Computed example of a mutant assay.
Amino acid sequence: MGIIKLKNIRTFSYHGCLVEESKIGSDYIVNLEIKTDLRKSSETDDLKDTVDYVLLNKIVVEEMAIRSQLLEHVAHRIITKIFKEIASVSRIIVAVSKVNPPIGGDVEAVTIEMEEYRN
């Protein structure tokens, strides 16, 4: 088995419960970790034998572009789509951070993290 990580995927998205957030948007950072079997690809050196991190990034960017009120909802969609599209993934950890959130304080980011295993 092995782990593939995509660190600090940056997007500009429109998530949040406030009406203003749906209009002005905000910066987000997503960190993704997937568990898969890397033994075959480590021997064959062939992209078809591994999980393509270009596809992982594409899924994250597409799901971040769909407005949601809650970061948990966005993370759940990312997890669901990865499991649906990539059969070899057995576990996913995704963290979605809203940078400089409008919460009335000096807070660098708010982050939710979810971990799911394939059934």
Rank of each mutant, 00 (worst) to 15 (best):
D46I: 12
D46Y: 09
L47P: 11
K48Q: 15
K48A: 15
K48Y: 15
D49L: 15
D49I: 15
D49G: 14
D49Y: 15
D49M: 15
T50A: 13
T50K: 11
T50M: 14
T50P: 12
V51G: 10
V51M: 15
V51E: 09
D52I: 11
D52R: 10
Y53M: 07
Y53I: 11
V54S: 12
V54Q: 09
V54N: 12
V54G: 09
L55D: 14
L55E: 13
L56N: 08
L56K: 12
N57L: 01
N57A: 06
N57F: 02
I59V: 14
I59C: 04
V60C: 02
V60H: 02
V61S: 03
E62L: 08
E63D: 10
M64H: 00
A65C: 05
A65K: 10
A65M: 06
A65Q: 10
I66C: 04
I66A: 04
R67P: 01
R67T: 06
R67W: 03
R67G: 04
S68R: 15
L71R: 08
L71A: 11
L71W: 13
E72G: 14
E72A: 09
E72M: 10
E72I: 13
E72S: 11
H73K: 10
H73Q: 09
H73S: 13
V74R: 02
V74E: 05
V74S: 01
V74N: 01
A75P: 07
A75R: 09
H76N: 12
H76L: 14
R77W: 03
R77H: 07
R77E: 04
I78S: 03
I78R: 01
I78H: 02
I78V: 09
T80N: 08
T80R: 08
K81F: 00
K81M: 04
K81D: 02
K81P: 00
K81C: 00
I82C: 08
I82W: 06
F83D: 01
K84D: 12
K84L: 10
K84M: 10
E85N: 12
E85K: 14
E85A: 13
E85T: 14
E85H: 07
I86E: 08
A87K: 11
A87C: 05
S88D: 14
S88G: 09
S88Y: 04
S88K: 13
S88L: 10
V89N: 10
V89L: 09
S90K: 13
S90T: 15
S90M: 11
S90L: 08
S90W: 06
S90A: 09
R91D: 11
R91S: 13
R91G: 10
I92P: 00
I92K: 01
I92L: 01
I93L: 04
I93V: 08
I93N: 06
I93S: 10
V94M: 01
V94K: 02
V96R: 04
S97I: 05
S97W: 05
K98Q: 02
V99P: 05
V99I: 14
V99H: 07
